[in-house]
């Protein structure tokens, strides 16, 4: 995929499909050590050890609509190509944590791309889910917790156009400021 944020969207969709109601998404850009690390932790149904082992095999899927699962193997291949790796920790009934690393400066590393739209796509999912998103670059941090937003909004849903626009703007501006801090 052209952007890491598309792999991230795909992984977040796995969490939603696994019934997660809360997902933590951490992106850490450590320029000093030249590492980009993406952590996705969900409270979905989790996987057995056996399923975890198979999950990186492109010919494995638990879905019934098609016979190959592609998402995780593609994400893992993207990481490996950039001197990184994808690790899965999962416990049935508790949840799943995905840790994906990349050499930040690697020539083949796709850009992160449009994180704002990735998050919107997940938040507009038919199944309600909250995301805690924390993104840091060399110690500076942007964070947003949709559970807090939801609480402030009362009966107004996240899918309300005004809220959606606010979320998109907040994410875009926050991430732009993170990348280009005022001197």
């Amino acid at each position: 995929m052209r952007e890491l944020s598309l792999h991230i969207l795909d992984a977040l969709e796995n969490s939603v499909e696994a019934g997660a109601t809360r997902i933590e998404l951490l992106i850490e850009e450590d320029l000093q050590n030249d590492i980009l690390k993406i952590t996705i932790k969900d409270n979905g149904r989790g996987m057995s050890e056996e399923v975890v082992k198979k999950a990186l095999d492109p010919f494995f899927t638990t879905r019934t609509t098609r016979h190959v699962g592609l998402g995780l193997p593609l994400f893992a291949a993207a990481a490996q190509q950039c001197n990184g790796e994808l690790r899965i920790q999962s416990q049935p009934g508790i949840g799943t944590t995905l840790e994906v690393t990349f050499q930040h400066s690697h020539i083949d590393r796709a850009p992160l791309g449009d994180m704002a739209t990735t998050l919107l796509a997940v938040l507009m999912s038919e199944r309600p889910v909250d995301i805690y998103y924390k993104h840091s670059i060399d110690g500076r941090t942007f964070e947003l917790d949709t559970a807090e937003v939801r609480q402030e909004l009362g009966t107004v849903p996240l899918s309300h156009p005004l809220v959606r626009e606010w979320l998109e703007k907040t994410l875009r501006e926050g991430l732009a400021a993170l990348r280009q801090p005022e001197q």
Binding site: E13, L74, G154, T155, V156, L162
Partner: peptide
């Protein structure tokens, strides 16, 4: 935002059009 949104919430909830976009791996790709 909450105050603004609440005012037209009723209309929104009753709107008759629903658009669904597939967001599986193949769709994303």
């Amino acid at each position: 935002l909450r105050e603004e949104a609440q005012q037209d919430l009723k209309v929104r909830l009753e709107t008759g059009t629903k658009i669904t976009v597939g967001m599986g791996t193949c769709g994303i790709a």
